[in-house]
Simulated assay, not measured.
Amino acid sequence: MLDLDPEFLDKYADLAAVPDRRGALPEKVRHFIRLAVAANSTHLYLPPVRGHIRRALDAGATPQELMEVLECCATLGIHAMNIGVPILVEVLEEAGVRSGASELTEYQERLKAEFTANRGYWHSFWDEILELAPEFFDAYTEFSSVPWKTGTLEPKVKEFIYIAFDTAATHLYTSGLRLHLQNAVGYGATAEELIEVMEIASTLGIHGLLEAAPILQEESGGRDERA
């Protein structure tokens, strides 16, 4: 990038440094956000992961905190159910197989209460998953609650992690983004902190250039040599 277009690299460096100059988030939390953007399953851009982990440790993060960031990222897979189950319900109702929601059993009511206690919220997009797949929802509640029951990050920071990968261009899960923004505000997050999370996530586009620029340089250099 420096060889091919130093001005562009300079402008990117200025863009990426805005959150660092403003500093609404602690330094280690900014590295948590960068790690969440790179290491979540819809992007999984591995080259910078080691650097983000190293710089977070240098800024005072513990291995437990960083593991918790990765554990929060691992919950992204549930969005297949959040998106898929409502569509399944529509299909079943169109086919006349389903006529409406069933009354929750005692087991399902207990699961709803446990999720609300462990995760600190309930949202209507869980209703149909709880109804149609209670055993899966039970297992997911236990899986997703680990950072909330044994973790060391404060609740709003965990919400920042969810916000980071929900708002990232490779995912754009808007219903989850709205929910986690609301949760973060409820935990005391400021507008400045939340904007900073999204500013960090918005630099994801440079990863394509980091991969493609060396190829461009290699190919164009080869042509020069052949000429």
Rank of each mutant, 00 (worst) to 15 (best):
M1S: 13
D5M: 05
F8K: 05
D10L: 12
K11Q: 13
D14L: 13
A16K: 09
R21H: 11
R22S: 08
R22T: 12
A24L: 06
H31W: 13
F32T: 07
V37L: 04
L44Q: 13
Y45G: 03
P47H: 02
G51F: 04
H52N: 11
R54F: 06
R55W: 06
R55L: 11
T62R: 14
Q64A: 15
L66K: 03
E68W: 01
E68S: 10
L70P: 02
E71C: 12
C73G: 07
H79Y: 08
L88V: 01
E90G: 02
F115A: 02
R119M: 14
W122D: 06
L130K: 03
L130F: 08
E131H: 02
A133M: 12
A133W: 01
P134K: 10
K149N: 10
K149V: 09
P155I: 02
Y162G: 06
F165S: 02
D166M: 03
T167Q: 12
T170V: 10
T170G: 08
T174G: 09
G176D: 00
L177N: 02
L179S: 04
L181Y: 08
V185P: 02
E192D: 15
V197G: 02
V197Y: 01
M198R: 04
E199N: 11
L204P: 01
L204W: 09
G205R: 15
H207F: 00
G208C: 05
G208K: 07
L216Y: 15
